[in-house]
C-alpha cells in the first residue's frame, strides 16, 4: 500500500513540476516570439509567476460543474497506465498502450464538452463537430501506432521501450514519426496553450479569472499535450534507455523538454490554424494517406518477412 502511495506522490510531484516549468516556458517562448520580454518584474522574479497565476485562478468563487470534476479526474487517471520509467507505474497492465489511448480519447472528449459550454447551455452542434474533427486527427495516429505494434509485436509500453535497446523505432518508421509529430502539432494548435483556438473554444472559456474551472481546463489541456509528448518519446525515441553514462530518467526528461520546446517554437512560428476547412484538408490530404501508406508498407514487410521468409 505504501509503495503505491509513494508512486502516487512521485507522479504528482513530477506532474506538478512539469506543469510549473512548462507554463513558464510557454509564456517565455510566446513572449520572445512576440518581441517582448514576458513577465519579468525582475529576471529571476519571473520564475515565481506561474505560482502567482495559480493563486489568481483560485482567488475567485466558482461553482464547479460536474463535467469539470470528471475532467479533473481523467486528466490524472490518464497517468495511471503510462509508465514514467522501468519501475514507476501505478497499474501494471499488459495492454496499457490500448488503455492509455482510450483514456486520452475520453479526456479530449471531456475537454471539448467543457469548451462547448456557454452561458445559455451547451452548443451541441458545435460540440459534435469539434469532437469529430479532433477524432479524425486520431486516425493517422491510430495507423502509426498499429504499424509500431506490428513491428514490436506487443501492446505493452514497457516492452515497446525495451525493444528499442539497440535502434529507436524512428529508424524503422521515419514516415510514421513525421505523421505522428505533425498530428500532435496540429492538436496542440487546436487546443492552443498560448492562445485558444476559436474553432474549438467558445468565448466563455477564456473569460478573465473564471476561477477553479479554468484552472482545471488548463491543467487538462497540458495533460493531453504531455501525454502525446510522452507517447512520442516512448514509441519512437527510445523512452528511458540510458545514453552512454547518462541516466535513463534524465534522458527521458531531456527528451520531453526538447520535444515540448520544438512544438512550442513551431506553434509560434506558424500562423494560427483557426480555419476548419484548412485543418481538415491537411488531415485528409496529407496525414491520413501518408499514415495509411506507411501502415500498408509495414504490413507488406511483415508478411514478406514472417510468412514467406523472403527478407
Amino acid at each position: 500500500m505504501t509503495a503505491i502511495l509513494n508512486k502516487v506522490i512521485y507522479i504528482f510531484c513530477i506532474m506538478g513540476i512539469n506543469l510549473y516549468f512548462c507554463s513558464y516556458l510557454t509564456s517565455k517562448v510566446s513572449a520572445r516570439s512576440e518581441l517582448r520580454r514576458g513577465f519579468v518584474a525582475s529576471r529571476i522574479g519571473g520564475l515565481g509567476y506561474p505560482f502567482v497565476k495559480l493563486f489568481r485562478y483560485l482567488a475567485k468563487d466558482y461553482k464547479l460543474n460536474i463535467w469539470e470534476v470528471f475532467l479533473f479526474f481523467f486528466s490524472l487517471f490518464i497517468w495511471t497506465v503510462v509508465p514514467f520509467s522501468q519501475t514507476l507505474t501505478l497499474i501494471k497492465f499488459d495492454q496499457d498502450l490500448l488503455m492509455a489511448f482510450l483514456f486520452y480519447l475520453l479526456l479530449i472528449f471531456l475537454i471539448l464538452t467543457n469548451s462547448s459550454r456557454s452561458n445559455h447551455g451547451y452548443i451541441f452542434q458545435n460540440m459534435t463537430k469539434n469532437v469529430l474533427m479532433i477524432y479524425t486527427f486520431m486516425l493517422p495516429v491510430f495507423f502509426c501506432v498499429t504499424s509500431l505494434v506490428i513491428i514490436n509485436r506487443t501492446l505493452n509500453l514497457k516492452e515497446i521501450t525495451g525493444f528499442q535497446y539497440q535502434y529507436w523505432n524512428i529508424v524503422y518508421q521515419p514516415l510514421g514519426f513525421i505523421v505522428f509529430f505533425t498530428s500532435v502539432l496540429l492538436q496542440l494548435k487546436l487546443f492552443g496553450l498560448t492562445k485558444s483556438n476559436p474553432v474549438l473554444f467558445t468565448e466563455n472559456q477564456e473569460k478573465e479569472g473564471a476561477g477553479l474551472g479554468r484552472l482545471i481546463v488548463r491543467v487538462a489541456r497540458y495533460s493531453a499535450l504531455f501525454f502525446l509528448i510522452v507517447m512520442i518519446s516512448i514509441l519512437y525515441l527510445g523512452g528511458w534507455h540510458s545514453f552512454y553514462f547518462i541516466n535513463g530518467n534524465i534522458i527521458f526528461i531531456l527528451k520531453f523538454y526538447i520535444i515540448f520546446f520544438i512544438l512550442l517554437l513551431l506553434d509560434k512560428a506558424t500562423p494560427g490554424l483557426d480555419d476548419y476547412r484548412y485543418l481538415v484538408s491537411i488531415n485528409w490530404r496529407f496525414l491520413v494517406p501518408f499514415s495509411a501508406a506507411n501502415f500498408l508498407l509495414t504490413i507488406i514487410f511483415f508478411i514478406l518477412r514472417n510468412i514467406y521468409n523472403l527478407i
Binding site: S30, S33, E34, L35, K195, K268, A269, T270, P271, G272, L273, D274
Partner: peptide, 11 residues
C-alpha cells in the same frame, strides 16, 4: 497578420 494569427510577422 494579427487576424491570421501570425504573431512573428505581425510584430
Amino acid at each position: 497578420c494579427k487576424i491570421l494569427g501570425s504573431d512573428i510577422v505581425f510584430n
